[in-house]
């Protein structure tokens, strides 16, 4: 079986300040990997480097996505090829309706795959069905992208986009931050509904609570730009009970346990 993602010796920096100091990780189809770690450990950087954010410079290592070099490609090419990043802080775009962005995004991917673009009617039918599953009101489609959205609406909007774009690799950056328990459950249901044998997910989170609902296959702990510990879902509970201080004290595990 071909892995969806293979990260080897990945190092990245911003303004010459190293953030990632050698990440190794392999993600196979159908798997959910949780990346945990204290603030500043490099979790969000990893997510953004994989999506192609140019504020970070990759200084070493390589990443293969479905067997091909990922880092050489522009962010939009990665996206059209099925790499999706749910943003921790989704940006607001005034005057651009949510539905317009969604349609442009879906049709960009369809064009790339050589499929015909969806017309307005077919698109609306599709997006409405997804909307229902995310328990989002219709009017969210016609409001400006993320403008005036509550924290919960922004996060649900990210998952809605994911549901629509059906990525092969979904990277969820702090999908749970700022959510109350009801909103958290909605988001979690949305994520779980997208679990599929051909799809992999990387769930970046600071707290264990999202993992009560979205149960990962593997948990990795990031500290100072390295994976210092990897394990099954139990590792998350251990972290919850003992805090990240325990990890920092621990001897770094062999980097990239898998």
């Amino acid at each position: 079986m071909q892995p969806i993602l293979e990260i080897r010796g990945l190092e990245a920096s911003v303004d010459d300040k190293p953030i990632l100091r050698g990440i190794d990780l392999t993600v196979n189809p159908g798997e959910i990997h949780a990346i945990m770690g204290p603030n500043g450990s490099g979790k969000s950087t990893l997510a953004q480097v994989l999506a192609g954010r140019e504020t970070f410079t990759v200084t070493a290592g390589h990443v293969r996505y479905l067997g091909a070099d990922l880092l050489a490609r522009a962010p939009e090419e990665r996206a059209r090829d099925g790499v999706f990043l749910a943003f921790q802080y989704p940006v607001e775009i005034a005057g651009v309706s949510n539905v317009y962005l969604l349609k442009a995004a879906l049709n960009a991917a369809r064009r790339h795959r050589g499929e015909p673009e969806l017309d307005a009617m077919d698109f609306l039918a599709l997006v409405r069905s997804k909307l229902k599953s995310m328990e989002m009101p219709d009017d969210l489609l016609y409001r400006s992208v993320n403008e005036g959205f509550s924290g919960g609406e922004k996060k649900r909007n990210e998952i809605l986009q994911m549901a629509l774009l059906e990525p092969r690799l979904a990277i969820l950056d702090e999908a749970d931050s700022g959510l109350d328990i009801d909103a958290l459950q909605v988001v979690a249901r949305g994520i779980n509904a997208l679990r599929a044998p051909e799809r992999a997910m990387i769930v970046v989170t600071h707290y264990q609570r999202l993992l009560d609902y979205v149960v990962p296959d593997y948990v990795h702990v990031l500290s100072q730009g390295r994976i210092v510990r990897s394990g099954g879902k139990e590792l998350a509970f251990e972290l919850e009970a003992r805090g990240y201080g325990w990890i920092d004290d621990a001897v770094p595990a062999a980097a990239g346990a898998r």
Partner: peptide, 19 residues
């Protein structure tokens, strides 16, 4: 954000400007 959703940078700028 727009490019991560698959839009070219050009399309993104023109979308943001018309908004």
């Amino acid at each position: 954000y727009c490019r991560q959703r698959g839009l070219s940078a050009e399309d993104a700028v023109s979308m943001i400007v018309s908004g």
